[in-house]
Computed example of a mutant assay.
Amino acid sequence: MRAQLRRLDPILIQAVIAAALSFAHIHDIAEAAGQGGWKAWAYPVSVDLLMIAAWRRMRSDIPAQRKGAWFWFGLALAASLAANIGTAGVLDLTNLPTPLRVIVGGWPAVAFLGGTLLFHSRKTHAEPEPDEAPDDEPQAPADEPPAPPADEEIEPPANEPEKPVLVSYADAADALGVAPETIRGAANGPKARLTKYSGLTPNTVRVDLNEARRVIRRPAGV
């Protein structure tokens, strides 16, 4: 039990005490103004509810709601503050002045107007619901081409030209198992069968290893 008492927030306790005192003071003013029985208890309820509703609108993200809520919050706070001061010996509760009796009598209509405006301001600024529900099927982006039908055959891409593998005469001879003179003779002369490529230096010549395989190792009689 003591552990639970330690967990109570002092600010919450102070707020409950202040609310109870304010509640009793408004009741006393209403009762002194001729509102006896349950009606005297209904006055502090209406004041506190109007203040709470206005405070909730003041925390809204919509500027129009906050602007109107400040007025009703200030009005409820002024009514509570006036009741607290009036019961502190400032007023004779046995003989309240007529203007104060008029204010107490007209408070229910004012509280009803404020609560109605605060409630409908939430409905007016609520986000509109969409007219039509979004389609469940995902749509393809506009820049992507449509997929071909399933019954159509997709043509394979054209074969890209084979990139040459450039090697020296000696490297080509080692790879093919022939003498370097054979590679040199196939790449030079009036009947050259191999294409020569320039190397890194002017005196360096390269040949395509794939082309050498096709030319040097071709079947006899071809």
Results as ranks from 00 to 15, higher is better:
V102C: 04
V102N: 10
I103C: 12
I103P: 00
V104S: 02
G105A: 14
G105P: 07
G105S: 14
G106D: 11
G106L: 11
W107P: 04
W107I: 03
W107T: 05
W107L: 05
P108Q: 01
P108N: 01
A109I: 13
A109K: 07
A109E: 11
V110H: 01
A111D: 03
A111R: 01
F112G: 12
F112T: 15
F112K: 13
F112I: 10
L113D: 10
L113I: 14
L113A: 14
G114I: 01
G114W: 01
G114A: 04
G115K: 06
G115H: 09
G115S: 14
T116I: 00
T116W: 12
L117G: 12
F119L: 11
F119N: 04
F119S: 10
F119K: 06
H120E: 14
R122F: 09
T124I: 15
T124S: 08
H125G: 00
A126T: 10
E127G: 01
P128S: 07
P128C: 01
P128D: 10
D131N: 14
D131G: 11
D131H: 09
E132P: 00
E132K: 12
E132L: 13
A133M: 11
P134K: 03
P134A: 06
P134N: 06
P134E: 09
P134M: 06
D135K: 10
D135A: 14
D136T: 12
E137F: 15
E137M: 11
P138K: 03
P138N: 02
P138M: 03
A140I: 10
A140Y: 10
P141F: 05
P141K: 01
A142D: 14
D143L: 05
D143I: 00
D143Y: 13
P145E: 09
P145R: 02
P145F: 06
P146L: 07
P146H: 05
A147L: 12
A147C: 00
A147P: 00
A147H: 05
P148R: 01
P148W: 02
P148M: 01
P148N: 02
P149Y: 07
P149K: 05
A150M: 08
A150P: 08
D151V: 04
D151L: 04
D151E: 12
E152T: 15
E153S: 07
E153L: 15
E153M: 09
E153H: 00
E153V: 14
E153P: 11
I154P: 00
E155C: 05
E155H: 00
P156Q: 08
P156W: 05
P156V: 12
P156I: 08
P156Y: 00
P156G: 08
P157N: 06
A158H: 07
A158G: 09
A158Q: 09
N159H: 08
E160D: 11
E160L: 11
E160K: 07
